[in-house]
């Protein structure tokens, strides 16, 4: 297994995995806090359409993916201002996006394998230039998140008081969807469009079951995403089964374990968990 590490594609895959784990681990807690699981799915599906369109027109699929997800983020943010409208807006945009995606696939017959790649991810296909783009995108995502983190948490936990305190609640909602779109476009490269929730929701949800300290919850979320991603990639290299399968399985098992252990931890600690 150590010999594998000499291959450039393995190195690229592992570095990409680490970068994506950090981004997903840090963005995830906000997704859970804002109840945006369905939005993650919607952004990813429209991202798929963007990628399919890009391939059809001879452009870079990752750029198309990012463009699709960003467009969807702005659409969801604009149409789903009120909480009641949000899921309906996501559903409508998602369905329209997938419809377009089907058209693009039909128009471009050679596309079948690339479609599979985007739907289920192929981390081992990440090239050196993909990696550079990924790192730049990840840095931008995390910087933007850090810039709005404090008012975003306020607006997510306590929207009425946040508004009274002058927090631009509506604007932050759109800004976070844009950040989320970038994170989705990154995570898709490991696990694919269909499994993106496994990195953007599950680690954060598991972390929440284990601690009530915001800082510790973030660290645990990154740690879980890190272990699942790297574990998944390595297992895939050794066994040749898809990495997305291993990542999704590891992340699900972690979640189940946290669900089982979490209540016990908080029972022992009284109402004040770790």
């Amino acid at each position: 297994m150590i010999e594998l590490l000499h291959y450039a594609f393995v190195q690229n895959a592992l570095v990409a995995g680490v970068v994506i784990a950090v981004v997903a681990g840090l963005v995830g807690p906000y997704v859970v806090m804002r109840n945006l699981s369905f939005a993650v799915h919607g952004l990813a599906e429209v991202g798929f359409t963007g990628a399919a369109g890009a391939v059809l027109f001879g452009l870079d699929p990752i750029a198309g993916l990012l463009a699709g997800a960003l467009l969807a983020a702005v659409g969801i943010g604009t149409l789903g201002v009120r909480l009641r409208d949000r899921d309906v807006a996501i559903g409508s945009i998602l369905a329209f996006g997938l419809g377009l995606g089907v058209l693009f696939l039909t128009l471009y017959t050679r596309y079948a394998t690339e479609a599979f790649t985007i739907l289920f991810g192929t981390i081992t296909a990440v090239s050196r230039s993909d990696l550079v783009l990924l790192v730049v995108l990840a840095a931008g995502t995390l910087l933007a998140l850090a810039a709005i983190s404090r008012p975003l948490i306020f607006a997510s936990v306590d929207p009425e008081v946040a508004e009274a305190k002058g927090v631009p609640v509506g604007l932050l909602s759109i800004a976070f969807l844009v950040i989320l779109a970038a994170a989705v476009a990154e995570a898709v490269q490991v696990v694919g469009v269909l499994l993106v929730l496994t990195l953007l929701i599950t680690p954060a949800a598991a972390a929440q079951k284990l601690t009530a300290r915001p800082l510790l919850a973030n660290l645990l979320s990154v740690l879980i995403a890190f272990v699942c991603t790297l574990g998944g990639i390595l297992a895939s290299l050794v066994t040749l089964y898809p990495a997305s399968f291993y990542v999704a399985t590891l992340s699900f098992l972690t979640y189940v374990a946290a669900r089982l252990v979490g209540p016990r931890l908080s029972r022992r600690a009284g109402r004040v968990p770790l």
Partner: peptide, 20 residues
Amino acid sequence: PVRGRDLVRMGLDGARWGLA
């Protein structure tokens, strides 16, 4: 994962940009 003390702090500087 938000405790009472985190909520109270938001009343002080929750509207400011950046990380808490």
